[in-house]
Design a protein around this nucleic acid. Sequence first.
DNA 1: GTCTATATGACGATAGAC
DNA 2: GTCTATCGTCATATAGAC
Lengths: 231, 231
Amino acid sequence: MTTAPAAVDRRQRRRLETIEEVVDVAAEVVAEQGAAGLSIGEVARRMGIKPPSLYGYFESKNAIYDALFARGAQQVLEVMRPVMRAAADEQSLETALLTSGRTMIRWSIEHPAYAQLIFWRPVPGFEPSPAAYAPAIALMDESRQSFTVLQERGLIRSDISVDVILRNWTILVSGITTQQLSNAPDEPFDTGTFTSALPDIVAMFATRYAAPPAGRQPASTTRKVRRADKR
Amino acid sequence: MTTAPAAVDRRQRRRLETIEEVVDVAAEVVAEQGAAGLSIGEVARRMGIKPPSLYGYFESKNAIYDALFARGAQQVLEVMRPVMRAAADEQSLETALLTSGRTMIRWSIEHPAYAQLIFWRPVPGFEPSPAAYAPAIALMDESRQSFTVLQERGLIRSDISVDVILRNWTILVSGITTQQLSNAPDEPFDTGTFTSALPDIVAMFATRYAAPPAGRQPASTTRKVRRADKR
DNA sequence: GTCTATATGACGATAGAC
DNA sequence: GTCTATCGTCATATAGAC
């Protein structure tokens, strides 16, 4: 029969492969031309088909953006998940942040096409669908979870909420990534002008938010760290 | 005579006014649609003229982007210059950074059209001309100058180069701005989720880079600030 | 079912009439 | 100095070949 399961599967599989190829090619184009430089015609040209054929797989250009966003968010989640799990078991806040920050920023620098789409909003009129956005939310949830564990383990000051810690940490990661991508996008992660600042930035953050060693905290309220903390 | 100086001046002035109007309208469009959403047709429509007429004033769409970049960079320089001068005379690194950081970030949040163009690279193929970029360079130069003064006045640690300080400071400012603009662009500066982090971030930075008070610095090499500073 | 052919309207840009 | 006319390309849509 023409509708036998095997045939359906084969066709379905072929279709999914094509969809993947579209996203692959779109990612190439975005990597070369920037997120706003994606065109359906260019994708079709590289695939050796005509632009209208793409509409059999994606109902609009924004749907391709959405697939790119989804794939990027999914990849970064997969890359970050084991690192965040390991970070929660780290011996100090500083090493935990250094490894997870390095992984996150390296991925962003090495996948600027996805990073632009996820970190910035370069495409007018495009908003990621809830499904595409889900991994990004999961990433934030797991980050919050890791910080919570670190705080419970006594490596993070207990007088500051995890949400504030997380917000401030995302600011730092976003700052390094943005500066590197917009000012020197061709520098590799390992020798980047701004990526090289990560140890500095992490030390800064850890000095402020790491829990002070037990028994070393005087009753005095004039400690520098305390004083500056009115919020 | 038709080419008498007075007539030339009047025509020249009229022309410059029109050029200004084009940039005004383009700024409106970019504020509404994002940097990549600018179209010559839309600008012409709002001005009540036809698209080709714009080519009498700008030779290309990128030339309009360039004018926008130049105006934005010029404005931010003018806004920042007095603040940076004052910052150099401030009583502490923390207050100096708080006022200048607040001014810079507030301007960026309140002028997202220009900020996008200056901080990010949202338009494929557009690079600002040297002339348009000049104010941005001047801003960096004056920032470096301010930090140098603060270091000479003993408010900044003398064992770290001004360039590293400046780089790390731009990372923090860029991080706050980017997070606010891309995650909650409609929040005003005063109550923004990320702009509210500025005092925290500044305190973090100042705790690390402010010169320790004279006479309070022990010979010990185990000071926290020192230890984390291998670079 | 998936493609090609074709059409529409907006875009950036140019040439030339007035 | 502004217009009309026009070009090539773009995203998008539909009809129909195979």
